[in-house]
């Protein structure tokens, strides 16, 4: 829980800073895969490994996973139709048979219509979400953050001793 809270605070900090838009966008895109996956499966573990080893913002990933899980709930019937259509495609039958017999691969639960549908949709949407969220973050920083920084309230806060102390702490240990 501490790690999650820490990551969410880091997300807020990073969102309002000048850097890290790629980390945030990748986090949101990974969250899409996590949120769309209906069950805990091998691909979920792979995403977690990626989050652990690659510089992807975990707070962004968990927050977006929470959001996309609700979206997926609404779209499940569509995922079911898409997954069913793919699994019934004659052209892929041989491939699926081979994968079904292989060790480890069945742990992905690819043979389930919703898992397949949600998986395909989330992989297709992954780059889209990445670039869209990256653009939105830049836009957010330019319009919202910059405008906020110009407000009297923020200037007053910046003038306080507490803020100066925080800025120094951030510079040394942040």
């Amino acid at each position: 829980m501490t790690i999650i809270l820490k990551q969410i605070f880091a997300l807020l900090k990073l969102l309002n800073s000048d850097t890290g838009e790629n980390q945030l966008a990748a986090g949101i895109a990974c969250g899409l895969i996590l949120g769309f996956a209906p069950v805990f499966s091998l691909q979920t573990i792979l995403v977690f490994i990626m989050l652990f080893f690659l510089r992807i913002q975990m707070g962004a990933a968990f927050t977006s996973a929470f959001f996309f899980a609700f979206v997926a709930y609404v779209f499940d019937p569509i995922f079911d139709s898409i997954g069913g259509a793919i699994l019934e495609m004659g052209a892929f039958k041989g491939l699926f048979e081979t994968l079904y017999m292989m060790p480890i691969i069945p742990f992905t639960k690819f043979y389930n219509s919703v898992v397949m549908g949600a998986g395909i949709v989330s992989f297709l949407l992954f780059p889209v979400i990445f670039f869209v969220s990256k653009g939105l973050i830049v836009k957010y920083r330019e319009s919202v953050v910059e405008r906020f920084k110009q407000t009297k309230f923020w200037k007053a806060v910046k003038a306080t001793g507490f803020y100066k102390w925080y800025a120094k702490y951030e510079e040394l240990y942040g």
Binding site: P38, F79, L87, E88, Y111, S113, V114
Partner: peptide, 16 residues
């Protein structure tokens, strides 16, 4: 009971 739509499981032969 799956909280989300459980979908359909397809079988491609009998795995080992």
């Amino acid at each position: 009971k799956n909280p989300r739509g459980k979908g359909r499981d397809y079988q491609f032969g009998t795995p080992n």
